[in-house]
Amino acid sequence: MNPILLIASKESGELLLSTRGLACLLAMAVVLSGFGLLLVGDTELSLLDNAQVVYDMAGIVTALGALLALVVGVDTVAGERERGSLVPLLLTPVSRDSILLGKLGGVAIAWVAMYGLAAPYLWAVGSTGQNLVDGLAAVALLGTPVVLGFGFLGIGLGACLAMARTGLLIGLIALVLAASPLLLGPSLRQSAIGRAFDAVNPFSAAVNAYDAVIIDSVPIATQMLNLGTTAVWLALALWFARTSFHRVAR
């Protein structure tokens, strides 16, 4: 079997079949369920709020996906190091790039699992409203590079830092900072600093595209600039992961 596929299937198996991985997915499902149940009890929602609900859910799914990818990414290198299984892996007659590709594949499969978990929730809250399909497509198109980027960031941090806990902490701080557009209203982001932050923040690019596609019914094809921002983020995170992983000595 191709070593890349072997490593990727081992990584994804740890997520989908291990107790730890399933507990992670359960936590994600509980968050999405809580949000869905909160909405059911609200009788004051207008049709516009329905689009807002899908938009909010898309943002939450992206944030949770990035969190999951970050945890998986840090654990895939730093966790293996702490468990003592990284050195034997590096000593196998497989190139570093192949090992890294396998681990990247594990992060990608984690996101696919998260997306698969989130799709029924998006359908449940958004099927009576507008732009559900476009919303799902926007999450797939713009959420994927954001989420994978955080996974690759996690791999890079796990590779260049001695302790998984430190890598996780730094990654979480970066994620909270990047995901701040979910908490801050548009007016707070209209200042010069807010606009500058929005221009370089991949999470903002994804969230702004969700806003345009889901709430304003703008065609997703017009979101190329936002897509470009997320693609640049993915490329930078991949470069960081590769550089850091090639420097791993033990």
Partner: peptide, 9 residues
């Protein structure tokens, strides 16, 4: 629609 998903999953 929400309840089966929110409880079932």
């Amino acid at each position: 629609r929400v309840l089966p998903v929110a409880v079932g999953l």
